[in-house]
Design a protein around this nucleic acid. Structure first.
Lengths: 220, 220
DNA sequence: TTATATTTTTAGATTTGTCTAAATTATATT
DNA sequence: AATATAATTTAGACAAATCTAAAAATATAA
């Protein structure tokens, strides 16, 4: 089956919302898609007719297994292209999202598979988000929020949940990137800020807000 | 200015047709676009309104300078992506056209420029067609048809005008690729076929039909 | 040069995806 | 439980891109 760009954008967006909330409602999807609730209702009917959606009028909705499969294919393409843009074309990671939004709708399956191989079958995109494989299987990583790890335990940065240009700027300043080694030295109860050591640099202090958006996994 | 995928496809197609015929007529564009004459007329009005087209009802049409500039940007993207698909993703050259037809509509200018640099600023695509630079300048090559070059003169294959899978199969069999060195040893008046030597291989005979679709340039 | 054939355009319909405004259903409040 | 508020859907309209069928313009041929 082949879906329009618009259908694919809805599918992807529903997927992300239902990951958080289980059932999705019309208004939140409209907000996330920057469109009107009436337009969402129109599309819900189409996706239900195409058997991608569990949907009862006024009762909320979510993708069924077929819908999730389609969503994961789109997400796979999006993240592989993001990886390509950052690793091969040397884009800054905060610039690649809108371009990947276009590239993810290129339909050739062979293209995706060859791109995957060309890139060395990466498991995570430049933001640390997992890249589903061709069967829709998502690599899992045992990650924890930087603000919650024990003191003195060495950890590696695996993803960043706030992916704005402002956040990138901060992380660049701290010299924090995906793969950076971090140890938390002290937690200040006053404002929740942390004293951390990034790799072999001098210790520094990050705000609770920053810490809550940085995810890490343990090495040892 | 930003154009729809449909508009871009028309612009590109008009460009190719007017390269051959000067003025383009409705029916031939409809044939090349696999659409109806009425649809072409509709689009011509739009492109004229957007000041890309010289068009008088019933009198034929052609792109003006602004239209040609847009066409060359699309062709540039198409050929850069074809180069990427063949050189980096290892697609066969007869498989890449439909994928490049999709990729050429990705809008980011920065993407095109970075892709160009990543590929090493190639001048010709995998079919030997010239890749316009960012200013729309097309590299010229002094090429001649294989069927018309003098005997014993060494030449390099620069492009192939018939780009079907069938042709590719023949050329693969003869071990002829872009960049191959060819010398014509003898011309048979009986059927126009040529005895040629490809690089350091044994001499072989190609039909007039093949020879007419292979273009070369001289080395010395 | 008149009649015929071909090409091109117009008129009006259709599909997809969107919208506004109004109606309907669900939820919250008193 | 009745009513007010919020969420959702329906009805009807619109723009883009296409189509068919008919009309108009141009080209060709007797």
């Amino acid at each position: 089956m082949n879906y329009s760009t618009s259908e694919e954008n809805y599918i992807k967006c529903i997927y992300h919302l239902q990951q958080q909330t289980g059932l999705v409602n019309t208004n939140s999807l409209a907000a996330d898609m920057s469109t009107r609730a009436a337009s969402v209702t129109d599309m819900l009917k189409k996706l239900k007719a195409k058997k991608l959606l569990q949907y009862e009028k006024y009762k909320g909705f979510k993708l069924n297994e077929a819908g999730k499969k389609v969503a994961l294919e789109i997400i796979r393409k999006h993240r592989l292209w993001e990886y390509f843009l950052v690793e091969k074309l040397k884009f800054d990671w905060d610039k690649v999202h809108p371009i990947a939004e276009e590239l993810e709708h290129i339909s050739s399956e062979e293209l995706v598979q060859r791109l995957d191989n060309f890139l060395g079958n990466p498991s995570f995109d430049p933001h640390g988000d997992p890249i589903p494989d061709k069967n829709g299987k998502i690599p899992v990583i045992n990650q924890q929020c930087l603000s919650e790890i024990p003191l003195k335990k060495s950890a590696i940065v695996s993803s960043v949940s706030n992916q704005t240009a402002q956040m990138l700027e901060m992380l660049k300043h701290y010299n924090i990137a995906l793969g950076s080694q971090i140890t938390v030295l002290k937690k200040f109860d006053f404002d929740g800020s942390l004293e951390i050591k990034v790799a072999k640099q001098n210790a520094c202090i990050v705000s609770e807000q920053v810490a809550k958006n940085v995810f890490v996994y343990y090495v040892q």
